[in-house]
């Protein structure tokens, strides 16, 4: 098989799999939910019924009603509008954090799996060390160490924490690839190592990387929300979902459940949609 025909077979294979994916029920459901949240992340202000910071002092902690679909919080703010507008923060932070983790992790995994030897051994031990500390504890420590919390810091921390997982997955995939003929052929052509890694090996481990990306994205949503819940995410009062729960959860002991329930449901629905998508990808790409 020449290089050209090999490329063509690969392409038709990919388009066939994408066609299967489009018919996958889990994928359709997941993608629709995610599309809704992406839409409200971009055009949230159009869907919101009130300004997310508008405080109605006449109705503080009022239960869900026709006026306030999801009720109001202890500052008289409309929970529905806050949930819709708050989607932007968590989605952007989770996405960028996962992207960062995937990029650094993939680079480390590619080089470790390809170069092997001492570099691989030491790197893997360092990554093992990082993943031996629970995510939340590293994040809390890092936020305390940096002395402040902001979206960028949250992104850096979560990206850092996800690096080991991505690196390990990519490395395992590369170990399988580096024994293959096309790598040997590229080596014989005396291609540069970087060229072999990013132009030859990377495209072949891409499905693995994409699935790993979606899996991590699901965890990132959890991590961002949990960090905010523990008060180490964004400033109190932000409409971010985790922060909303953090600001209002003690109210459940006085029977005011709505300001906590709806942001929690929103978090769960995004997590469900991403998990559905990654499950569908796993199935279609037979990983």
């Amino acid at each position: 098989m020449t290089d050209e025909t090999a490329k063509q077979t690969k392409q038709t294979e990919l388009s066939e799999r994408l066609a299967v994916l489009k018919k996958n029920k889990a994928f359709i459901v997941g993608a629709s939910i995610l599309a809704f949240w992406i839409f409200s992340a971009i055009f949230g202000k159009l869907i919101a019924r009130y300004d997310q910071d508008f405080m109605d002092y006449e109705s503080i902690n009022s239960a869900p009603s026709l006026k306030y679909w999801f009720g109001t919080d202890s500052n008289g703010r409309d929970v529905f509008s806050r949930v819709i507008v708050g989607s932007r923060i968590i989605m952007v932070i989770s996405f960028l954090a996962t992207l960062l983790g995937a990029f650094v992790g993939a680079s480390l995994g590619l080089t470790a799996g390809y170069l092997k030897g001492k570099y691989d051994m030491i790197l893997m031990r360092i990554l093992e060390a990082i993943s031996a500390i629970p995510v939340i504890i590293i994040a809390l420590l890092a936020v305390a160490a940096i002395g402040q919390s902001s979206p960028i810091i949250t992104i850096l921390i979560i990206g850092f924490i996800f690096t080991p997982n991505v690196a390990r997955t990519v490395r395992a995939a590369v170990l399988g690839e580096s024994e293959l003929e096309y790598v040997a052929a590229a080596k014989l052509r005396t291609e540069k190592t970087l060229h072999i890694l990013f132009r030859e090996v990377l495209p072949n481990v891409l499905p693995t990387l994409i699935v790993e990306f979606t899996v991590r994205l699901g965890y990132a949503i959890f991590a961002v929300a949990t960090l905010s819940f523990l008060g180490a995410g964004l400033e109190a009062g932000s409409p971010d979902w985790g922060t909303q729960v953090a600001d209002t959860w003690t109210l459940i002991f006085t029977n005011v459940w709505w300001p906590t329930l709806f942001p929690s449901l929103a978090i769960a629905s995004v997590a469900v949609s991403i998990n559905l998508i990654s499950d569908a990808l796993l199935e279609v790409f037979e990983l």
């Binding site: 699901g218 959890f222 929300a225 949990t226 819940f229 729960v245 959860w249 929690s264 978090i267 769960a268 997590a271 469900v272 998990n275």
Partner: peptide, 8 residues
């Protein structure tokens, strides 16, 4: 169930 965070 697995998609609901612990705190929720």
């Amino acid at each position: 169930l697995s998609s609901i965070p612990n705190f929720a």
